[in-house]
Design a protein around this nucleic acid. Structure first.
Length: 855
RNA sequence: GCCCGCGUGGUGGAAUGGUAGACACAGGGGACUUAAAAUCCCUAGGCCGGAAGGCCGUGCCGGUUCGAGUCCGGCCGCGGGCACCA
């Protein structure tokens, strides 16, 4: 009898798979293909236990699909451009490229021992010139089709470092390094015209049947289709060169409750006033302070500046409203101007009270009271309300009805028009940074903005500054100050010109990598034959944090690539099924020192009766289920887990316990238990001896359980119920261990158990398969099938409730007549006791399920 | 602030509107052992009770239903996203 040693068997089987080329994906017409993809990692330097969980789920699907006769594509790559590489270079010297490739090497080295069934020959990193060169080609194609354009947009500007900051580099409205108050500043930037596809991206969500509903809801809300009224307020004083202010509102029914007009500090009228009035300029400067995020703007104190200008109300020309410049209105949204109705909007209410503006109701609750001066009345638009100041429609109607009526009325009377708008803005892709894909255009004094010629691609990032290394510790974009890289002849006229120094948002890189995997070495972005064969991604797996941006951008890219002939029509929605998995969490162990928390590593904490102690006996506070974070010392390193227990244990554990879409808590005890269980399965197989007492009845029972397990586990894997499948496998293992069946039946049961476990614990499964004389590799064996005849039970246990409370149960033949079930249920001892002679008023029999007696 | 989720024993969690707590961890008891480790068996939501059994129980409050962890409304707490983190 040998002992289970993961360290011995895992490398052995990985080598066997490698040699047999089991996971290499090649087109095989005639065999159904299956493309399973996990969101590729950022090369931070170490794999994280969350990666292990993500890729294990994908691997289970890949291995299962292979066993059910599919030709599987399961690739891996790296999302390798981005800020951390530059930050590392800034902090520790070195070069982003060296840092990134070295990290990739390390991470591949950490991933391979996990035994994922990946086709490593297709691997690439988005920072490979072979990849980003094709991305530049895509950009040029998009440009030609009018899918890319330039316009102004606001960025976070650090006035001390004189550089653009990412949102995460803005802390409490200040630059992370300089500490200077950040300003919103306009810059000319490149944009993808995603807004042109708003309607289509919204409508097509309905076709994504195998996406989580919550993701579709989030995307729909993000796209934000709304119908509203666009109209103008006439200015009473036209001396500043403007005669009106154009506004857009989704609540035209509150028009009679307007009490001010607000414009953005970047509105042309505000800009005009700013030029002539230092007080306005001062206010606008202040209003532009703070970050660009919606969150920062929403949470900032609402400030306004009364311009002294007034406008006329469109339905009462005697009614004049003041015009304010307000810090919470962005030029990017709508027309950059709004009208405020404090009676029916939280934000406007706050603003009105601050600046002493009137609060007027236009509708009130149908019943009851509401003090509009105290707080705004903001019911759902579907609720009926009583209008007090009506533009159009009935006195009592819903908000939606009133909005429609108002738009009709306004259009009929020449006051503006109904407009459908989308919240979705165009995708700004310019980044003023080095470590990204260079935007392949040239700025020529004579020809303007000229696309680079395709034969000159890739436009490579310069590694150094010619005679000296790039100094990343200087704020700003090294491409911008590079002595020679910018210089290039104009592709159009040949005269000396300058390259664009902005690089692309890293979301661009991850918006088409799934397509590139179908032909990763091609000289064009994709190869139609390969794309047609492998696309779409049948199962995409990743974190919920990507629910909106990454997935929406990818959907846009797939459409844009189709327009340019890089993807087939059928791939406009590139991900057939989506699964969003939860995080792996771990307890934080902390003590207090001088009022500050001190975090302790798990290996320094001894657990006893649910309490934790340090070596010196100090008790530590345990904060369960916390997100893993380096600064909290609660990160679990998969490499250590593999060294301690082996890959199969790590894989088994991350799938067990928690449903995949939920967070899972990593505990040392849990990992220990997983390892023990795998050892037990191994022992069951290696202890299997011939010549035990053979009893037909026990054989029959074991075979029935086996078929049930095959059925349940198959269903579990099909529906991403990995934790449930594992619970069944635990149960079946117990059944085998206790079974008195003969060795033939037991051998069959354990071989089947190995097959059912093989997607989760492939190395152990191969070992057992070989031990029990299975043919070839288990990785290439067909998936077991459950015999339907073995699944049906003759009798069923039915619980009996009285008034919804369980009082007993009866064992009845499966198809017993409901009237007979009722009779037997009423005769039940527990029911009789509870009824205590009373007559039941009603008896509900749900065949095969439950009986409820109502008294 | 806005959008989307989640909340069940000591712990991770199970449960097509139909027996709440499957499976597992920690705990308790036992077997084997000179002893320990390993392994195996039993037990286990809380309260009352010797037992039979009863009462309570899925974050909180209310509703729909013969029946609610599950559906609806309100609240509290936690997490994800908010367009330059990936």
């Amino acid at each position: 009898m040998s002992r289970y040693s993961a360290a011995e068997i895992e490398p052995k089987w990985q080598q066997a798979w490698d040699e047999a080329g089991v996971f290499r994906a090649e087109r095989m017409p005639g065999k159904p293909k299956y493309y399973v993809l996990e969101m590729f990692p950022y090369p931070s330097g170490r794999i994280h236990i969350g990666h292990v969980r993500n890729y294990t789920m994908g691997d289970v699907v890949a291995r299962y699909k292979r066993a059910t006769g599919h030709n599987v594509l399961h690739p891996m790559g790296f999302d390798a451009f981005g800020m951390p590489a530059e930050n590392a270079a800034m902090a520790n010297g070195g070069h982003p490229r060296d840092w990134t490739y070295s990290n990739i090497d390390t991470m591949v080295g950490q991933m391979k021992p996990l035994g994922f069934s990946l086709d490593w020959t297709r691997m690439f990193a988005t920072c490979d010139p072979e990849y980003y060169g094709q991305q530049q080609a895509l950009f040029l194609d998009f440009l030609e089709k009018g899918l890319v354009y330039r316009k102004n947009a606001v960025v976070n500007w650090d006035p001390v470092d004189m550089t653009v900051l990412a949102n995460e580099q803005v802390e409490d409205g200040r630059g992370w390094r300089s500490g200077a108050l950040v300003e919103r500043r306009e810059l000319t930037q490149w944009f993808f015209k995603i807004s042109d596809m708003s309607e289509e991206l919204l409508d097509a969500l309905d076709t994504l049947d195998d996406w989580p509903a919550k993701v579709k809801t989030m995307q729909a809300n993000w796209i934000g289709k709304s119908r509203g009224l666009q109209f103008s307020f006439g200015l009473t004083d036209t001396s500043h060169g403007y005669d009106r202010v154009e506004v857009y509102t989704t609540r035209p029914d509150t028009l009679m409750g307007a009490s001010f007009v607000g414009i953005s500090p970047d509105h042309p009228l505000a800009r005009e006033l700013e030029r002539h009035d230092p007080r306005v300029a001062e206010f606008c400067k202040q209003a532009r302070q703070g970050g660009t995020t919606e969150e920062a703007i929403e949470k900032a104190e609402k400030l306004g500046y009364d311009t002294g200008l007034t406008v006329r109300h469109p339905f009462d020309t005697a009614w004049e409203l003041p015009v304010f410049i307000a810090n919470f209105i962005l030029m990017d949204y709508g027309t950059g101007a709004i009208f405020g109705c404090p009676g029916h909007d939280e934000r406007d209410h706050e603003f009105a009270r601050k600046y002493g503006l009137p609060i007027i109701d236009t509708f009130l609750p149908v019943e009851g009271e509401h003090d509009i001066q105290k707080e705004p009345f903001v019911p759902p638009k579907t609720e009926k309300v009583r209008f007090t100041r009506l533009v159009a429609g009935e006195k009592i109607q819903t908000g939606n009805e009133a909005i429609d009526a108002t738009i009709d009325f306004c259009e009929a009377n020449g006051v503006g028009q109904g407009v459908t708008k989308f919240r979705l803005r165009d995708w700004g892709l310019s980044r003023q940074r080095y470590w990204g894909c260079p935007i392949p255009v040239v700025h020529c004094d004579d020809c303007g903005v000229v696309p680079e010629k395709k034969e000159n691609l890739p436009i490579r990032l310069p590694y150094d500054e010619g005679d000296k290394p790039i100094d990343f510790s200087i704020p700003g974009n090294p491409l911008d100050r590079h002595p020679t890289w910018r210089d290039t002849p104009c592709p159009s006229c040949g005269k000396p010109a300058k390259r664009e120094t902005d690089t692309m948002d890293t979301f661009v890189d991850s918006s088409w990598y799934f397509a590139r995997f179908t032909a990763p070495r091609a000289e064009t972005p994709t190869v139609m034959e390969d794309a047609e064969y492998w696309m779409n991604v049948d199962q995409y797996i990743g974190g919920i944090e990507h629910a909106i941006l990454h997935l929406l951008y990818s959907r846009f890219f797939a459409r844009a690539m189709h327009i340019c002939g890089h993807l087939p029509e059928a791939s406009k929605e590139p991900f057939d099924a989506l699964f969003t998995q939860g995080m792996v969490t771990h307890a934080i162990y902390q003590t207090q020192k001088d009022g500050r928390p001190v975090y302790h590593y798990p290996e320094d904490v001894e657990l006893k009766d649910g309490k934790g102690f340090l070596e010196d006996g100090t008790e530590v506070e345990i904060i369960p289920s916390a997100k893993m974070s380096k600064s909290k010392n609660n990160v679990v390193d998969p490499v250590q887990i593999i060294a301690d227990y082996g890959a199969d244990t790590a894989r088994w554990f991350v799938l067990s316990d928690s449903p995949p879409e939920r967070d899972v808590e990593w505990t040392a005890a849990g990992a220990e238990a997983a390892a023990k269980h795998l050892g037990r399965v191994y022992r069951l197989a290696s202890d299997l001896t011939d010549g035990e007492a053979e009893t037909d009845e026990a054989d029959e029972h074991l075979m029935r359980e086996m078929h049930k397990t095959v059925h349940d586990v198959t269903l579990g894997i099909d529906s991403f119920g990995f934790n449930a499948a594992i619970a069944k496998l635990y149960g079946f293992t117990n059944t085998i261990a206790k079974s008195r069946a003969g060795s033939v039946a037991r051998r069959m049961a354990i071989k089947t158990l190995a097959q059912l476990m093989s997607p989760m614990t492939p190395h152990l499964a191969e070992e057992i398969w070989q031990m029990l004389g299975g043919e070839g590799l288990i990785s290439q064996a067909p998936w077991p099938k459950a015999d339907p005849a073995m699944l049906v039970e003759d009798t069923v246990t039915m619980p009996i409730q009285v008034n919804g409370k369980r009082r007993g149960e009866i064992e009845v033949p499966k198809d017993l007549d409901p009237a007979e079930v009722e009779k037997r249920a009423l005769a039940n001892e527990g029911v009789q006791r509870t009824l205590d002679g009373a007559q039941p008023r009603k008896v509900i029999v749900v065949p095969g399920r439950i009986v409820n007696v109502v008294m």
